[in-house]
Design a protein around this nucleic acid. Structure first.
Lengths: 213, 213
DNA sequence: AAAAATAAGGGGGTATTTCCCCTTTTAAAA
DNA sequence: TTTTAAAAGGGGAAATACCCCCTTATTTTT
């Protein structure tokens, strides 16, 4: 069976070379190229015939970072699977990378065997996320709201419906309330969440992960 | 060491009794009570001195379902950890249960050893989610909209300003255009992005990371 | 050079949102 | 059992958003 072609992208030469040695030892995989930043990825993919199946992508990199590069790949080479390999384990970075289209997310302190397993999973099943990453994200869903304000069930319902491109009249129908009562919810939330328009409500709902996009 | 007290809640008697037998065989755990629905949970917790450490909670149940019961527990007995045990694996249900405060989520087709492991994890680390559940959620973040339309610079600018809680009049000033020209941008984008309101524009902008929250 | 797309601007109208101030009903506290 | 607070509903008006159809330059394409 042909080995699966990999490109490694990381601005820390020591690390990327070490990684190169490691992955090259896995006989299912072949390291096609080692690149230093997102810009080089875009250049390589644009100008070479031999395309990788998987790109092992660092996130923090100069010139074009991993998120931007992944976004570019989503639009220009959607078949290439990006496996993020990062030291950040914060929710925002993970979300950005997922939205950019990364099929997997690994932390740099994992065991080589996990890397091998993750590469295989990404290639065959299409995704792989380490437990740390999923736990970070799932826990963040729980720890979202108690920021300072706590919304009641009905307010949450209203908020979700507001995000769904409905008019207040429609929301009133869904919630079995009069449009005028919906007005009360709106005004209460405007004040409570310190926003000026319904756009503000939508932004809040997304930031606090009351809805997930 | 004292066994950890568990309450099992499920409306299918056969299943809950089978579960009872299973968990009772784990010598770290003691089944305090087997209940039939969320209402009975609320009653039990309200009226008994001996409280469980963990509640193994089904979701679909009559009278008071698992989500409602978990919500009640969050507010009235926050120390009790809820481990959801369900057949549903859809994103919406999982999210609801997480928001309600469930510390873990298992599917009913798991191996008994996983159940044991999950109970231990929930007790000691505070959470446990099976891979299926986390994958469902993470993938749902990605599968938003592979809507590969390309926006022009000016359209992007308009979109970003729309997200910033500005009126079209204000956007017109910032972009040095007449409000009527802004209307053209709005209409063009409504059609191009297949949305019906400016909320739709905001959602698109966030999904496609044109703005980052 | 003619045709076609692109960018800018407008008229006029309906629907929706936003704002402020108000009453009634229902549920919780004192 | 009063008293209070919360939830539900409302009137009226101005601002904003949304819709459809239209004109005029300026590029781009053919």
């Amino acid at each position: 069976m042909n080995p699966i072609n990999i490109i490694i992208v990381d601005d820390h030469l020591l690390f990327s070379q070490a990684l190169n040695g490691l992955v090259s030892n896995f006989d299912e995989f072949n390291v096609l190229k080692v690149l230093n930043n997102g810009k080089e990825v875009i250049d390589y993919i644009s100008n070479n015939n031999q395309q990788p199946e998987i790109i092992l992508m660092d996130i923090q990199m100069p010139i074009v970072n991993g998120i931007e590069a992944t976004n570019w790949l989503k639009n220009n080479a959607p078949d290439i699977k990006v496996l993020a390999l990062s030291m950040e384990c914060d929710e925002v970075t993970i979300l950005k990378m997922l939205r950019a289209g990364a099929k997997g997310y690994l932390l740099k302190d994992i065991h080589p065997n996990i890397l091998r397993h993750a590469l295989k999973e990404v290639y065959s099943n299409g995704f792989y996320y380490t437990e740390n990453v999923t736990n970070t994200l799932l826990n963040s869903i729980q720890n979202a709201a108690p920021n300072n304000v706590s919304l009641k069930d009905r307010e949450l319902e209203f908020l979700k419906l507001t995000v769904s491109e409905r008019t207040y009249k429609e929301i009133a129908e869904v919630m079995c309330l009069s449009p005028k009562t919906i007005e009360n919810y709106r005004e209460a939330l405007f004040e409570k969440l310190e926003v000026k328009t319904r756009i503000g409500l939508v932004l809040y709902a997304i930031k606090e992960k009351i809805v997930i996009l």
